[in-house]
Design a protein around this nucleic acid. Structure first.
Lengths: 353, 353
DNA sequence: CTGAAAGCGCTAACAT
DNA sequence: ATGTTAGCGCTTTCAG
């Protein structure tokens, strides 16, 4: 079914049919109705491919997203739905290995995507710089390292970590430890900087310890290293929820009571932080807000016809969206255990996890 | 940069350039090299949009996927990567509300997608039947209700549930309870049927109880209802891991020791089942195998040029991929807690019925 | 083996 | 307000 079929069915020219579907107000109501009817009868739907060929706009946005962690699922879902609300499609590039990014770029070229969302911290600054040369609207999502290179939007990592640090001081912590994932990531260094600074200002030291990855397993394994610290910290500020959940389980397996003996905090706001076994204090990212801004930034560039570009002649925009502190039992739950102290003989809470 | 540019740069006709990129063996090695060089110099990449317009193939596959649950993330990732391995792109339709499915269908029409993966149990049989009329290659993923209507691939729910039931009997359960999510889903009824049948054959009764949803929260809330049962069951066979995890937490919050007082099993094989606090016995789905088969089924139809069709003239294919039983502490971990209990039934080592 | 030419289905001047 | 016409960049006969 093409517009030509509809045209002959409706007894008008092909151009009129096209107008009915792209600029309905440029055609008389009577003919419009006639055409609509014919189209419905024939089950005609305009061919977006042909349209794109002419208009040089595909209305498809690509997104390069890591394949790991629950957090990203929410991000992808948000992007999918928000783009759809604006009449755009999402072409997804999920990846584990480096080469997926290359593939995404290749597809972008071939399919003439209107823009690309880069939501992966694995993409290095050099690669980003290279991409910013190719006059393609780009936006980096939660990838602080991209700030200044391409337009970006991310949670305010430093400020968020500061909020957590302040909270931890408020509940009386005196010796903290920061547990990060991968030391080389900008996410880690910003969060560490924020936390260490706020703690330092309040006279609390805060060394840094890396797990080697951002996963439950890495956090779990890090428990041993945490317990080797001398002196033992009062609180562990973890740079990501997934790590924190693993760490908590690791600590409890080692017989440590969390929060009884050691407080723990996270960062991100995964759904699991609410699970009763954890009830983790963390900084919840506003994913809706973040994705919204990212799409806006992208559309701005597309409208403006610019490539991955500067705001209006300066450095690329680097937006920060604040998160919100979630206070859970992992930093305030000691009271509860104190109350339950009468039945000390009962099995320690630590093994139920 | 178009093929015309490359043609003049290389001193050949536009047609030759096109051939170099679509049927390289139909052009002399010498000219091919010349064209390649020119293309590289100009940074030319064939325009997939234009190609699609002519070839009537987009190499883009759509996927309608629920926005909930960690499980789906793995599915999406697998699809994204496996399609990419075959030179196909994934256009994602993540959804929460009904209307997203409509949007997906609309996009499929507009963009002339080569095929569509339906991975949502929310899509009813009527809607599926309606879609199967439109000569579009389709495949249903883990949606047993689609079997017989459109080609489908899913985990063997009934057999999996049977395996779990057998295991549960092996560890000495005498009164079981099946906790489902939504009674109307085919997933639920197949899993229940498999479990109830296997248990029945072994003289164990197994009533059904629905949570109303497939979420952690629903499982958590269901704990109260479970505890009201008279007599209390020995084991709860839950139809999905996410529910099971919530149920375990709910039970523990109510002071019930799992697995000390009550055994629990799940279904799906989420990453969280390995977390130390749970260590859930469950049936692990082979997601790689499932996605692989789904893509095969789709490609078969595309090659064959058929619409959502029958195998070769019969009913649509309905493939079943077996899962594997994972035995965790939630059905075998009593030993640890039962130290003060006098063990009349030492945990029988049972990795298989 | 290579070139010329005719579309794929649509948009957008331009003309009526 | 509607019709005519010329492409968008590619694939694909059909000649040479």
């Amino acid at each position: 079914m093409t517009s030509v079929d509809v045209a002959s069915e409706a007894g008008v020219s092909q151009a009129t049919v096209a107008r009915v579907f792209s600029a309905p107000d440029k055609v008389a109501p009577a003919t419009r109705a006639k055409v609509q009817a014919a189209a419905d009868r024939l089950g005609y739907v305009p061919n977006a491919i042909a349209r794109s060929l002419k208009s040089q706009r595909t209305n498809i946005i690509g997104a390069v997203v890591p394949a790991f962690g629950e957090y990203w699922q929410h991000v992808v879902t948000q992007f999918s739905q928000r783009l759809s609300d604006r009449g755009l499609q999402l072409l997804l590039f999920s990846f584990t290995e480096e080469d997926r990014v290359e593939r995404a770029v290749a597809a972008v070229d071939q399919y003439r995507l209107d823009g690309l969302i880069m939501a992966s911290a694995v993409i290095g600054p050099e690669q980003l710089a290279r991409m910013s040369d190719r006059d393609l609207p780009l936006v980096a999502f939660n990838q602080p390292a991209a700030a200044g290179i391409i337009p970006s939007v991310s949670v305010d990592n430093e400020e968020g970590a500061r909020r957590i640090a302040e909270h931890v001081v408020d509940v009386g912590v005196e010796r903290a430890l920061f547990v990060g994932g991968v030391a080389s990531t900008s996410t880690d260094s910003l969060r560490y900087r924020g936390a260490a600074q706020a703690l330092g200002e309040r006279g609390v030291a805060c060394p840094y310890l890396a797990c080697g990855a951002f996963s439950y397993e890495a956090g779990y394994k890090a428990a041993a290293a945490v317990l080797e610290r001398q002196p033992l910290p009062d609180a562990v500020i973890v740079s990501a929820d997934e790590l924190a959940l693993g760490l908590i389980d690791g600590l409890r397996t080692n017989g440590v009571d969390v929060p009884g003996e050691l407080l723990v905090t996270g960062f991100d706001g995964l759904p699991q932080v609410e699970w009763t076994g954890y009830d983790l204090t963390t900084l919840v990212q506003n994913i809706e807000g973040l994705t919204d801004r990212a799409i806006d930034l992208l559309l701005d560039q597309i409208e403006r016809g610019s490539g991955a570009g500067a705001g209006a002649g300066g450095a690329p925009v680097a937006e920060m969206v604040p998160g919100t502190l979630r206070v859970g039992a992992t930093t305030t739950g000691r009271g509860r255990d104190a109350v339950n102290h009468d039945d000390k003989d009962k099995e320690p809470r630590s093994d139920h996890g």
